[in-house]
Design a protein around this nucleic acid. Structure first.
Length: 260
DNA sequence: ATGTCGTAACGTTTACGA
């Protein structure tokens, strides 16, 4: 079962690029972030034509997450628990049943948090605290599950081409890294780092200042696996080439293969 | 030229968020 995360930066603008990647990569599941669309405005037809079931959790103009799955989506829930007043669409869950195992999928778009310090940074850290609570509950189920998406966290200096440029940024500040580490250390496997080590692996290149051409990237899209999911993992990779195509997102897909 | 996008809105341009 191939499961990918992809921040597409606007579903209305990314239709052709997303379809091209789906046709080529053939993921069973794609967890999408930044659809920037309400549910009613999500153009599901091209994906349904390709055999995907579609579940969305959108809002007007910003944020928004979705799941595309060739397997039926069961027990879909929307919104990260812990704050009924939070109206930002950043979390969606569903279960898919493979031939060998069922997998609980959590798609997330973690707040950017800039400028830091400030209320947006406070919101980011509060959201990560809620994420930690949900992560703890997921682990207690002792079953295959993953939390994947745009974490907006650069875990370590080796995950940025120019770490000194991010030192004061909400994506790399010690508070953000600490909160991310606390969640991982509950018992998750960070899928990409379980398969590849060392610097030079990125999932985002800014549109500005020739970041792609200079390979000035950062690694902020992650898949966290419960132990039961990690036991099923056979591969994890970044589809870097997607960034060089026509009208690309500023992020590229990251995927895991599970023997599920 | 202060290096780019995507989206929304009383739009032929500006604001915002990233």
């Amino acid at each position: 079962m191939k499961i990918a995360t992809f921040n597409i930066n606007g579903i209305k603008a990314r239709g052709p690029a997303l379809c091209d990647w789906l046709d080529e990569a053939q993921p069973d599941v794609a967890l999408l972030q930044e659809i920037k669309s309400v549910d009613e405005g999500f153009p599901a037809e091209p994906f349904e034509e390709r055999g995907y079931n579609v579940a969305t959790h959108g809002q007007k103009g910003f944020n928004g997450v979705a799941i595309l799955s060739k397997l039926p989506l069961e027990d879909v829930t929307r919104g990260l628990p812990g704050d009924a007043a939070d109206e930002q669409a950043r979390w969606i869950e569903a279960t898919v049943v493979g031939e060998k195992a069922a997998v609980r999928l959590c798609g997330l778009y973690l707040p950017n948090g800039n400028p830091a310090p400030g209320p947006k940074f406070d919101y980011k850290l509060a959201w990560m605290n809620r994420l930690k609570a949900r992560a703890t509950a997921l682990l207690s189920a002792e079953a295959p599950a993953l939390m994947a998406g745009d974490y907006n966290v650069i875990p370590q200096d080796e995950d940025a081409a120019r770490p000194e440029a991010w030192r004061e940024d909400a994506l790399a500040r010690p508070e953000s890294r600490r909160a991310f580490r606390e969640i991982v250390n509950l018992g998750f496997t960070e899928a990409f780092r379980a398969c590849s080590q060392g610097p030079g692996h990125y999932t985002f290149w800014d549109y500005q200042a020739g970041a792609w051409e200079r390979n000035n990237g950062i690694r902020i899209d992650h898949l966290l696996l419960t132990p039961q999911a990690a036991d099923l993992m056979t591969d994890c990779r970044i589809d870097k080439d997607v960034r060089a195509r026509e009208k690309p997102s500023d992020h590229v897909p990251v995927w895991v293969e599970l023997d599920a």
